[in-house]
Computed example of a mutant assay.
Amino acid sequence: MQDMQVKSGSGPLPLRPRAAASLILIDREGAEFRVLMGRRHARHVFMPGKFVFPGGRADPDDGSISAAAELLPEDEQKLLAGMGSRGTRRRARALALCAIRETYEEAGLFLGRRTAGGAKPISLHPDWQAFAERNLQPDLSVLRYVARAITPPGNVRRFDTRFFIAFRDAIADQLAEGTGPSGELEELCWLSFADACSLDVPSITLAILKEIGAQLRESPALPSAGFPGRPVVQYTMRYGRYVREII
Protein backbone atom coordinates (compact mmCIF):
# COMPACT_ATOMS: atom_id res chain seq x y z
CA MET A 1 0.00 0.00 0.00
CA GLN A 2 1.39 3.39 -0.98
CA ASP A 3 1.50 6.30 1.42
CA MET A 4 -1.25 8.83 0.78
CA GLN A 5 -1.69 12.49 1.53
CA VAL A 6 -4.94 13.67 3.07
CA LYS A 7 -6.12 16.94 1.56
CA SER A 8 -7.41 19.78 3.63
CA GLY A 9 -8.83 23.12 2.62
CA SER A 10 -5.34 24.63 2.47
CA GLY A 11 -3.68 21.74 0.65
CA PRO A 12 -2.31 18.26 1.38
CA LEU A 13 -1.39 17.41 4.95
CA PRO A 14 2.04 15.90 5.72
CA LEU A 15 2.30 12.15 5.33
CA ARG A 16 2.04 10.17 8.53
CA PRO A 17 5.25 8.16 9.12
CA ARG A 18 4.86 4.40 8.70
CA ALA A 19 6.36 2.02 11.26
CA ALA A 20 9.58 0.49 9.95
CA ALA A 21 12.72 -1.26 11.17
CA SER A 22 16.30 -1.66 10.00
CA LEU A 23 19.12 -3.99 11.00
CA ILE A 24 22.78 -3.03 11.37
CA LEU A 25 24.74 -6.27 11.02
CA ILE A 26 28.28 -6.21 12.39
CA ASP A 27 31.11 -8.60 11.50
CA ARG A 28 33.55 -8.71 14.43
CA GLU A 29 35.82 -11.55 13.28
CA GLY A 30 38.56 -9.55 11.55
CA ALA A 31 41.02 -6.89 12.61
CA GLU A 32 38.29 -4.24 12.49
CA PHE A 33 34.53 -4.17 12.69
CA ARG A 34 32.67 -4.33 9.38
CA VAL A 35 29.06 -3.47 8.61
CA LEU A 36 26.69 -4.84 5.96
CA MET A 37 25.49 -2.28 3.41
CA GLY A 38 23.61 -2.51 0.13
CA ARG A 39 22.64 -0.11 -2.65
CA ARG A 40 18.94 0.58 -3.16
CA HIS A 41 17.82 -0.18 -6.69
CA ALA A 42 17.58 2.80 -9.02
CA ARG A 43 13.89 2.10 -9.66
CA HIS A 44 12.95 2.99 -6.08
CA VAL A 45 11.08 6.24 -5.51
CA PHE A 46 12.51 6.57 -1.98
CA MET A 47 16.30 7.08 -1.82
CA PRO A 48 17.18 5.44 -5.18
CA GLY A 49 20.81 4.43 -5.56
CA LYS A 50 21.68 5.13 -1.92
CA PHE A 51 23.61 2.68 0.26
CA VAL A 52 21.61 1.65 3.34
CA PHE A 53 21.19 -1.08 5.95
CA PRO A 54 18.61 -3.81 5.23
CA GLY A 55 15.18 -2.68 6.40
CA GLY A 56 11.67 -1.74 5.50
CA ARG A 57 8.08 -1.21 6.54
CA ALA A 58 6.48 -3.39 9.22
CA ASP A 59 3.94 -5.96 8.05
CA PRO A 60 0.63 -6.51 9.90
CA ASP A 61 1.56 -10.16 10.59
CA ASP A 62 5.01 -9.47 12.05
CA GLY A 63 3.83 -9.10 15.64
CA SER A 64 2.15 -12.52 15.66
CA ILE A 65 5.17 -14.57 14.53
CA SER A 66 6.52 -16.95 17.16
CA ALA A 67 10.20 -16.61 18.05
CA ALA A 68 12.88 -18.93 19.38
CA ALA A 69 13.72 -16.25 21.97
CA GLU A 70 12.22 -12.87 22.78
CA LEU A 71 13.71 -9.41 23.12
CA LEU A 72 15.73 -8.70 26.23
CA PRO A 73 13.61 -6.81 28.78
CA GLU A 74 15.79 -3.69 28.50
CA ASP A 75 15.23 -3.45 24.73
CA GLU A 76 11.53 -4.18 24.98
CA GLN A 77 11.06 -1.47 27.61
CA LYS A 78 12.93 1.11 25.55
CA LEU A 79 10.78 0.34 22.52
CA LEU A 80 7.59 0.57 24.59
CA ALA A 81 8.67 3.86 26.15
CA GLY A 82 8.88 5.43 22.71
CA MET A 83 5.35 4.36 21.77
CA GLY A 84 3.50 6.19 24.52
CA SER A 85 -0.07 5.12 25.17
CA ARG A 86 -0.13 3.02 21.96
CA GLY A 87 2.70 0.80 23.15
CA THR A 88 2.05 -2.94 23.42
CA ARG A 89 4.35 -5.93 23.57
CA ARG A 90 3.05 -7.06 20.18
CA ARG A 91 3.97 -3.70 18.61
CA ALA A 92 7.44 -3.78 20.16
CA ARG A 93 8.25 -7.30 19.00
CA ALA A 94 6.71 -6.58 15.58
CA LEU A 95 9.44 -3.99 14.97
CA ALA A 96 12.19 -6.44 15.92
CA LEU A 97 10.63 -9.17 13.77
CA CYS A 98 10.33 -6.70 10.90
CA ALA A 99 14.10 -6.05 11.07
CA ILE A 100 14.79 -9.80 10.86
CA ARG A 101 12.28 -10.37 8.06
CA GLU A 102 13.54 -7.46 5.97
CA THR A 103 17.13 -8.66 6.38
CA TYR A 104 16.09 -11.94 4.77
CA GLU A 105 14.00 -10.21 2.11
CA GLU A 106 16.74 -7.77 1.08
CA ALA A 107 19.96 -9.62 1.93
CA GLY A 108 18.99 -13.32 1.97
CA LEU A 109 20.15 -13.77 5.58
CA PHE A 110 18.24 -15.67 8.28
CA LEU A 111 18.68 -14.61 11.92
CA GLY A 112 17.17 -17.44 13.92
CA ARG A 113 17.51 -20.88 15.48
CA ARG A 114 16.85 -24.39 14.22
CA THR A 115 13.77 -26.06 15.65
CA ALA A 116 13.86 -29.79 16.29
CA GLY A 117 10.20 -30.36 15.50
CA GLY A 118 10.02 -28.03 12.53
CA ALA A 119 8.76 -24.48 12.42
CA LYS A 120 5.21 -23.99 11.20
CA PRO A 121 4.41 -20.59 9.67
CA ILE A 122 1.44 -18.72 11.06
CA SER A 123 1.61 -16.19 8.26
CA LEU A 124 1.15 -16.45 4.51
CA HIS A 125 3.94 -13.92 4.05
CA PRO A 126 6.58 -15.64 1.85
CA ASP A 127 9.45 -14.36 4.02
CA TRP A 128 8.16 -16.16 7.10
CA GLN A 129 7.35 -19.23 5.06
CA ALA A 130 11.00 -19.28 3.97
CA PHE A 131 12.01 -19.48 7.65
CA ALA A 132 9.63 -22.37 8.24
CA GLU A 133 10.89 -24.27 5.19
CA ARG A 134 14.36 -24.28 6.80
CA ASN A 135 13.02 -25.25 10.24
CA LEU A 136 14.04 -21.85 11.56
CA GLN A 137 12.41 -19.51 14.02
CA PRO A 138 13.53 -15.87 14.29
CA ASP A 139 15.65 -15.07 17.36
CA LEU A 140 14.89 -11.66 18.86
CA SER A 141 17.39 -12.06 21.70
CA VAL A 142 20.32 -11.34 19.35
CA LEU A 143 18.99 -7.85 18.56
CA ARG A 144 19.80 -4.66 20.45
CA TYR A 145 17.71 -1.52 19.96
CA VAL A 146 20.10 1.36 19.27
CA ALA A 147 18.42 4.19 17.35
CA ARG A 148 15.22 5.74 16.05
CA ALA A 149 14.76 8.18 13.17
CA ILE A 150 11.66 9.80 11.70
CA THR A 151 11.67 10.88 8.06
CA PRO A 152 10.93 14.62 7.94
CA PRO A 153 7.79 16.03 6.26
CA GLY A 154 7.99 16.76 2.56
CA ASN A 155 9.40 13.38 1.46
CA VAL A 156 7.61 11.06 -0.97
CA ARG A 157 7.74 8.39 1.75
CA ARG A 158 7.87 8.85 5.51
CA PHE A 159 8.98 6.25 8.04
CA ASP A 160 9.31 6.03 11.80
CA THR A 161 12.26 3.64 11.79
CA ARG A 162 13.75 1.74 14.72
CA PHE A 163 17.32 0.57 14.18
CA PHE A 164 18.63 -2.64 15.72
CA ILE A 165 22.15 -4.04 15.82
CA ALA A 166 23.27 -7.68 15.73
CA PHE A 167 26.49 -9.57 15.16
CA ARG A 168 27.13 -11.56 11.98
CA ASP A 169 27.53 -14.81 13.94
CA ALA A 170 23.78 -14.65 14.71
CA ILE A 171 23.11 -15.62 11.08
CA ALA A 172 21.78 -19.19 11.00
CA ASP A 173 21.44 -19.63 7.23
CA GLN A 174 21.56 -17.68 3.99
CA LEU A 175 20.43 -17.92 0.39
CA ALA A 176 23.01 -19.21 -2.07
CA GLU A 177 22.34 -16.29 -4.40
CA GLY A 178 24.07 -13.86 -2.05
CA THR A 179 21.15 -11.47 -2.06
CA GLY A 180 17.51 -11.35 -1.00
CA PRO A 181 14.46 -12.53 -2.98
CA SER A 182 13.13 -8.99 -3.39
CA GLY A 183 16.15 -7.72 -5.32
CA GLU A 184 15.74 -4.37 -3.58
CA LEU A 185 19.37 -4.14 -2.48
CA GLU A 186 22.28 -4.52 -4.90
CA GLU A 187 26.04 -4.62 -4.32
CA LEU A 188 25.69 -6.09 -0.82
CA CYS A 189 29.06 -5.86 0.90
CA TRP A 190 30.76 -5.94 4.30
CA LEU A 191 32.71 -2.72 4.80
CA SER A 192 34.77 -1.04 7.46
CA PHE A 193 32.98 1.88 9.07
CA ALA A 194 35.35 4.32 7.36
CA ASP A 195 34.60 2.84 3.93
CA ALA A 196 30.86 2.72 4.65
CA CYS A 197 30.87 6.40 5.61
CA SER A 198 32.49 7.27 2.28
CA LEU A 199 29.63 5.78 0.26
CA ASP A 200 26.64 7.63 -1.15
CA VAL A 201 24.50 7.22 1.98
CA PRO A 202 21.50 9.20 3.28
CA SER A 203 22.38 11.75 5.94
CA ILE A 204 20.60 9.79 8.66
CA THR A 205 22.45 6.59 7.71
CA LEU A 206 25.73 8.46 7.94
CA ALA A 207 24.82 9.81 11.39
CA ILE A 208 23.97 6.33 12.68
CA LEU A 209 27.12 4.81 11.15
CA LYS A 210 29.23 7.36 13.03
CA GLU A 211 27.24 6.77 16.20
CA ILE A 212 27.66 2.98 16.17
CA GLY A 213 31.26 3.19 15.00
CA ALA A 214 32.13 5.44 17.94
CA GLN A 215 30.44 3.08 20.41
CA LEU A 216 32.39 0.12 19.06
CA ARG A 217 35.69 2.01 19.17
CA GLU A 218 35.11 2.92 22.80
CA SER A 219 34.11 -0.63 23.77
CA PRO A 220 35.59 -3.02 21.17
CA ALA A 221 35.07 -6.08 23.38
CA LEU A 222 31.30 -5.71 23.65
CA PRO A 223 29.93 -9.09 24.79
CA SER A 224 27.52 -10.95 22.55
CA ALA A 225 25.03 -11.04 25.41
CA GLY A 226 24.38 -7.33 25.18
CA PHE A 227 25.57 -3.76 25.13
CA PRO A 228 25.46 -2.74 28.81
CA GLY A 229 24.49 0.87 29.36
CA ARG A 230 24.33 1.63 25.65
CA PRO A 231 22.35 4.70 24.66
CA VAL A 232 19.43 4.72 22.25
CA VAL A 233 19.68 7.79 20.04
CA GLN A 234 16.75 9.47 18.35
CA TYR A 235 16.96 11.75 15.32
CA THR A 236 14.12 14.08 14.38
CA MET A 237 14.07 17.01 11.97
CA ARG A 238 13.70 20.45 13.53
CA TYR A 239 14.17 23.75 11.74
CA GLY A 240 15.65 22.01 8.71
CA ARG A 241 18.24 19.85 10.48
CA TYR A 242 18.36 16.57 12.38
CA VAL A 243 18.42 16.90 16.15
CA ARG A 244 20.03 14.14 18.21
CA GLU A 245 18.50 13.10 21.52
CA ILE A 246 19.14 10.24 23.94
CA ILE A 247 16.02 8.22 24.71
Rank of each mutant, 00 (worst) to 15 (best):
D3G: 15
Q5Y: 04
Q5D: 04
S10R: 06
L13F: 08
P14H: 07
R18P: 02
R18S: 05
A19F: 02
L23Y: 00
L25A: 13
D27P: 05
G30Q: 09
E32D: 13
G38K: 00
R40Y: 11
H41K: 14
G49H: 02
K50I: 03
F53W: 14
F53A: 10
G55I: 12
G56I: 11
D59F: 00
D61S: 12
D62P: 02
E70T: 14
L71W: 00
K78V: 02
A81V: 04
S85G: 09
R89G: 14
L97T: 06
C98M: 05
E105Q: 13
G108L: 06
G112H: 01
A116N: 12
P121R: 01
H125D: 15
H125R: 12
Q129A: 03
F131I: 00
F131V: 00
L136I: 15
P138N: 03
D139Y: 05
L140M: 03
R144H: 09
V146Q: 00
V156Q: 13
T161I: 06
F163K: 04
F164I: 02
F167K: 04
F167G: 09
A170C: 11
A172V: 12
D173S: 15
L175R: 15
P181Q: 13
P181Y: 02
S182R: 05
L188Q: 04
D195G: 07
C197N: 10
L199N: 07
L199A: 05
S203W: 01
I212C: 05
L222D: 07
P228I: 01
R230L: 09
P231G: 15
M237S: 15
R238F: 02
